[in-house]
Structure formats: C-alpha cells, structure tokens
C-alpha cells in the first residue's frame, strides 16, 4: 500500500528526516512513536505531499507520488489526514465541512454528497450536529468530524497526527474508540500518538522514531515491552515515569 524509501527532509540545514524506510500494508495499523521533535509530524506531512522532500521515494499503491511529474493534488486524494487541532473550517458548518471535498474536488452531485456526508456523520455519532458550527462542538467532537471528513472520499490510507494530544483527558476516549472501530473495519492507518496503551491494543506494528531516524519497529508487544535499542528503552522508561503506559 505505502512504501517509503530513504526519505530525507531538511528545514534549511536542519536534518529532520534522515533516510526513513517504512512500509504500510493494506488493512495494517502502523503507529509512530517518539519524543516531541523526532519528526513524526514531518513524516506524515511528507507522505501527504504537504512538504517537499529532499531525497527518497514515496510509493502509494504502486505509483511513485514523490515523482515531480505526478500532480500532488491528485495524489493526495488517495489519502486522508487529521491533525492535532484546527482541522475544521470554522466558517462552514459540520455538514459543509464534510461535503466540501466531494463537492468541490470530486464533483459529486450535491444530493449524493449530502447523503454520503450524513452517513459518515452517523458513523462518527454526530449526525445531529450536522448544522452546527465547529465552535459549538467539543474538541473530541471536532476531531470526530475531522475524521469523518477525511473519510469522505474513501481514502486508501488514513494519516492521523496526534489527534488526541490537544484534547482534555475525558475527551480522548471517544476519539480513540472511533479510531479503534476504523482499524477493526480494515481501514489502513498510519498514526503518530503518545497514547501507548492504545498503541498496544490496536497497532499491528509500532515504529520508534528518534532524531529523524527510524530506530526500531515491530509488533507492539516487542517494541513496547521488550525494546532492543537503548534509545527506545530510554524513551519508554520516560513514558512509564510519566504514567502513560
């Protein structure tokens, strides 16, 4: 599904991704962990072609989307991405947020786009909020709408960048429950998170990123309980001390 090869990204002279190799198979759930600043967000943005890469290849479904000849606007349509915050467009109501891409990008007729959007909102449990504006929603509800919106055009791959880290603790659960349902229904997921408990339950594979390099990856039981690399051990012991595992 997704193959990342030798991905290099610099901001100026600052090397942020240092030759990352990563594969995500269809229906797989891959979780990126790593301390703040390790390059998780940058990796997800590069995969979504929101940042220009400095070396390497990104292949989605057999097509090299990092090839400068591919149209990034087209390539992105195969993926959905949700960020930490500020996902929803505040001047559009929930329904219009979800319908926007189908209508504007994919030229789906109004009626059909609306039905599909309502279906997605029902799926994330927010059909009754269709006419509400984002500032009337809780943070957790906003993130669920953002997920519904990212799913509107049936992406092959869903990218989630710490979608619960800006939420109040009591709102994290509802969002993670939704992600768990998506994972169970076979959505291919690549997500960065600090929720180690969640990673343990849902991930097929956990990848530890440190200083822009992929240090270690494997099944959650191995990476989270018996990491081999000292840096991974260090990171996890800090997380355990903070009481988050």
């Amino acid at each position: 599904m997704l193959e990342v090869r030798n991905l290099v990204k610099r901001y100026g002279t600052h090397l942020v991704l240092d030759g990352v190799d990563l594969d995500v198979a269809e229906h797989e759930v891959v979780v990126l962990i790593g301390s703040s600043g390790s390059g998780k967000s940058t990796l997800l943005k590069c995969v979504n072609l929101l940042e220009e890469i400095d070396d390497g290849r990104i292949v989605l479904d057999g097509a090299d989307i990092s090839d400068p000849r591919t149209n990034p606007d087209h390539a992105r349509r195969g993926m959905g991405i949700v960020f930490q915050a500020f996902n929803l467009f505040p001047h559009l109501n929930v329904l219009d947020n979800v319908m926007l891409a189908p209508k504007v990008v994919h030229k789906v007729p109004e009626r059909q786009a609306r039905d599909r959007a309502m279906e997605l909102l029902a799926k994330v449990g927010l059909a009754e909020k269709a006419k509400a504006y984002p500032d009337r929603l809780s943070g957790g509800q906003q993130q669920r709408v953002a997920i519904a919106r990212a799913l509107a055009y049936e992406p092959k791959l869903l990218l989630l960048d710490e979608i619960t880290s800006a939420l109040d603790p009591e709102l994290v659960g509802e969002v993670l429950t939704l992600v768990r349902e998506l994972a169970a229904s076979g959505t291919t997921l690549l997500m960065a998170t600090h929720e180690m408990g969640f990673a343990k339950q849902v991930a097929d594979r956990v990848c530890f990123l440190d200083g822009g390099a992929l240090i270690e990856s494997g099944p959650p039981s191995q990476i989270l309980e018996a990491p081999e690399h000292p840096r991974t051990q260090q990171f996890l012991s800090r997380i355990i001390q903070a009481g988050r595992l």
Binding site: K45, L50, R76, F86, F89, L100, A101, H106, A146, Y153
Partner: peptide, 21 residues
C-alpha cells in the same frame, strides 16, 4: 492557522480553491 491550509490541501483542493473557499 497553517493546519487550515494543510487540511484544505490534503482534501485535494488546489491552491486557488484553498484560497477562495
């Protein structure tokens, strides 16, 4: 906010659509 632009682009909107809408 930059995430608004990134969100719009990631939905497949072009630069001018992102600006306009």
């Amino acid at each position: 906010h930059p995430s608004q632009l990134a969100s719009a682009r990631s939905l497949g909107l072009t630069h001018s659509q992102t600006m306009r809408i």
